[in-house]
Nucleic acid binder design. Structure first.
Lengths: 241, 241
DNA sequence: TCAGGTCGGTACGACATCGTACAAAGTGCC
DNA sequence: GGCACTTTGTACGATGTCGTACCGACCTGA
């Protein structure tokens, strides 16, 4: 039987390969920073199912914008896996409570080199993540706050597996790269129509279809591809652990 | 002696490996479309040095935004190389005259699988490209037109190896994802101070340092990483061809 | 030299978002 | 209960960009 709440990606590995990684299990909380901007990290993270990492990048002036999210289907810090060159400014926040497997780059690189099916999965995920960032680049340019808020909420809700998202408007303003009052207005517009419920420190999804209708077109392609990959990983999950 | 004007990436391959790709040489012109949005393509493209591809994504409403550029140091359509899943909406325009090597996915996949040094280079480039798109996602959200125009001009100038860029304001407005008059205003602001010269169908860089000073911070990290990779490829270039 | 098309400069009201400020509401602690 | 702090609601002028329109400049070919 597969151990519960594991990284979907790691769960596709045979027990001996998984053991060879000597993964360290960690618990993180909202707003924990896994890797700081411009910091070289030899750790690769595998969020467990339900955990979520926000990949954000900040500017000299201190603003920050989320460029993508990584959940249980993914791997964080592919950079170190793909290249030896130094990092270039992406930071990563944990969003919401969650468990993670932390693996040393040197160990995962060995598996990556020698295990072709695993490598293919990592590369497929990399392509999906690139696609997500691409979509966000367009979305950031063209779509208004309210639509982006709806999109963001849908994607995060699906990753964490709960309708109740614990976060503040201030946090959201950093994710969306807008000022805080703008978030409050957008949140209230959605709450007005009972699409979401707005509470202190919480946004609760009340009407999934309504939320989809208020989100921009960017939501579907991202979510669909992530979900398809998640399903694929679940099918390939290896028993034991 | 290496053949002139080849893809820097392909030039790192030994002659027999390169021959096995059966690359087709093609010439393309400004605004040619290499791969349409949502179209599955079994072709992988290697721009020759001086050629440039714009990766753009468009929305339902018809707007489009460039999310990154690929020059002689890169490979275009990594998607097909990394995954078998269907594509998701990125289109690609050629920017300026240029030659390309077109390779069938099946052939390049073989080399990708069997040739680890080559695979490492492709993956390193993928990481660089992801980084570029990431930076653009932030830039699109936070930086004003004029700064983004300056950044764009610097990056493209470096890739095509010429101070004279042939393009219209209308084309630029699509790349930057803004309306056309906005481009004209930004162009004139730069031309006012003799940073660039603005002619019909041309933008000519006149003051490189001045242009850098007017560009947003996003320019340097992207350009530096691309240049470093270009230099690395040139060192590894294999003679003959 | 003229006609038709493309490209660029400019204007102006509309609108989204910014920047900032401040008050109200909720929460935790003494 | 009362106090300090965080979070949220709201206001308002400033600003950047949009959407649209129009005209003049330039280019090409007849």
């Amino acid at each position: 039987m597969p151990s519960p709440s594991r990284s979907l990606l790691l769960d596709t590995l045979a027990p001996d390969a998984r053991a060879s990684l000597r993964a360290q299990e960690e618990e993180h909380r909202l707003s924990d920073v896994l890797i700081k901007a411009d910091e070289r990290s030899e750790s690769i993270f595998f969020p467990h199912n339900g955990a979520l990492v926000s990949i954000i990048r900040s500017t000299e002036s201190g603003s920050m914008v989320e460029v993508g999210v990584i959940g249980g289907e993914g791997i964080f810090n592919v950079h170190t896996l793909l290249t030896d060159s130094p990092p270039t400014g992406s930071e990563s926040l944990v969003q919401g409570e969650g468990r993670f497997s932390r693996v040393k780059a040197s160990r995962i690189k060995e598996v990556f080199r020698g295990n072709e099916p695993f490598r293919d999965l990592v590369l497929e995920y990399t392509s999906i993540f690139l696609d997500q960032v691409t979509q966000n680049a367009v979305c950031n340019r063209l779509h208004p706050i309210e639509q982006r808020l709806a999109k963001w909420t849908l994607i995060v809700r699906e990753r964490v597996g709960s309708d109740d998202l614990q976060l503040t408007h201030d946090f959201l303003s950093h994710m969306l790269g807008v000022h805080r009052p703008g978030v409050s207005i957008a949140v209230n517009a959605l709450a007005q129509d009972d699409v979401i419920e707005s509470r202190r420190n919480h946004i609760i999804v009340r009407d999934l279809e309504g939320l989809r209708a208020r989100a921009c077109e960017c939501h579907a392609p991202i979510n669909d591809r992530l979900n398809a990959f998640t399903a694929k990983l679940k099918k390939r999950a290896v028993s034991g652990g």
